[in-house]
Simulated assay, not measured.
Amino acid sequence: MKSAPGICLWYLLAATDAFGAGPLVDIRSYSPVIALDIRYATAMNFTGKPVAGYQSAKCLLHEPAARALAAAEVDLRGRGLGLIVYDCYRPQRAVAEFMAWSKAPDDPISKAIYYPDLDKSSLVPNYIAEKSGHSKGATADVGLLDCRSAPCRPLDMGVPFDFFGTQANTDWAGASPEQRQARQQLLQVMAAHGFVNYPLEWWHYTWKAGPLPDEAYDFPVE
């Protein structure tokens, strides 16, 4: 006997909550093929180590935002492209760790890679904030993949995810025509599915097409 769609959705949300995702769902429940590169679960980020609260490399979002992100991925696949996800829900304990990092002495390697042209003291609040929209479960950091041949490969966006500086601005004047086109393609498809870009970061998008709880969470990603 087939289950009613409402029952299936209830079961999915209940099961997700049982595994510690609170009110959020795993993007892989809606888009099994979406590429994940959750940097804060690894040492490949500006802090140089796995970040507090990232016990698993998952993308958790409120269900409407997850559905919208999955729909954007479907649209892109139809054009020979795809999404790569760098971050989604971010526990508040991770935000606190970022703030502590911003007050610590420079690591020369991190500075050379992530903020070569800025003083660390200037990263707050434009790039690192005491309260992050990521903690509310509707924000995702994403990039574009070229999937016209296997395997998919990241498109050149000008600077990498989590680069601090004007080069990361979505409308950076110094971007090459190819980089500008890639940023605009990402902007257009995300906007078509209800996501709004943060202009200082080409990768940062928040779903605002409908009401969601205005609550920041601190449960770990696991």
Rank of each mutant, 00 (worst) to 15 (best):
P125T: 03
P125C: 01
N126V: 09
N126I: 10
N126C: 04
N126R: 15
N126W: 07
N126T: 15
N126F: 04
Y127M: 04
Y127N: 11
I128P: 11
I128S: 05
A129E: 14
A129H: 10
E130Q: 14
E130C: 01
E130W: 06
E130P: 11
E130H: 12
K131Y: 14
K131S: 15
S132L: 03
S132Y: 02
G133I: 00
G133S: 04
G133V: 00
S135M: 03
S135D: 04
S135Y: 03
S135V: 02
S135G: 06
G137N: 06
G137W: 07
A138V: 08
T139P: 08
T139K: 12
A140P: 10
A140L: 06
D141I: 01
V142G: 05
V142Q: 04
V142M: 04
G143R: 06
G143K: 09
G143L: 06
L144M: 05
L144I: 02
L145Y: 13
L145W: 10
L145Q: 10
D146A: 02
D146V: 03
C147I: 01
C147W: 04
C147M: 02
C147A: 09
R148D: 06
S149M: 07
S149V: 14
A150D: 13
A150L: 11
A150S: 14
A150G: 00
A150I: 06
P151D: 01
P151G: 01
C152R: 06
C152V: 05
C152G: 10
R153P: 06
P154C: 01
P154R: 09
L155A: 12
D156S: 14
M157I: 07
M157C: 10
G158P: 09
G158L: 01
G158M: 01
V159H: 04
P160Y: 00
P160N: 08
F161C: 15
F161L: 13
F161D: 14
F161K: 05
D162A: 15
D162T: 06
F163M: 04
F163Y: 15
F163L: 07
F163H: 15
F164S: 06
G165E: 03
T166C: 02
T166N: 09
T166M: 03
T166G: 05
T166P: 11
Q167M: 07
A168T: 05
A168V: 06
N169E: 10
N169C: 05
T170N: 13
D171S: 11
D171I: 00
D171R: 12
W172I: 00
W172H: 14
W172V: 00
W172R: 01
W172L: 00
A173K: 13
A173S: 15
A173I: 06
G174Y: 00
G174C: 02
G174T: 00
G174P: 08
A175D: 14
A175Y: 04
S176C: 02
S176G: 05
S176M: 02
S176W: 02
E178G: 13
E178P: 10
R180Y: 10
R180L: 13
Q181G: 13
Q181V: 08
Q181S: 15
A182I: 03
A182H: 13
A182M: 07
R183G: 12
R183P: 14
R183Q: 08
R183L: 10
Q184F: 09
Q184M: 12
Q184A: 10
Q184G: 09
Q185F: 01
Q185R: 11
Q185L: 14
Q185V: 14
L186K: 05
L186I: 03
L186Y: 07
L187Y: 15
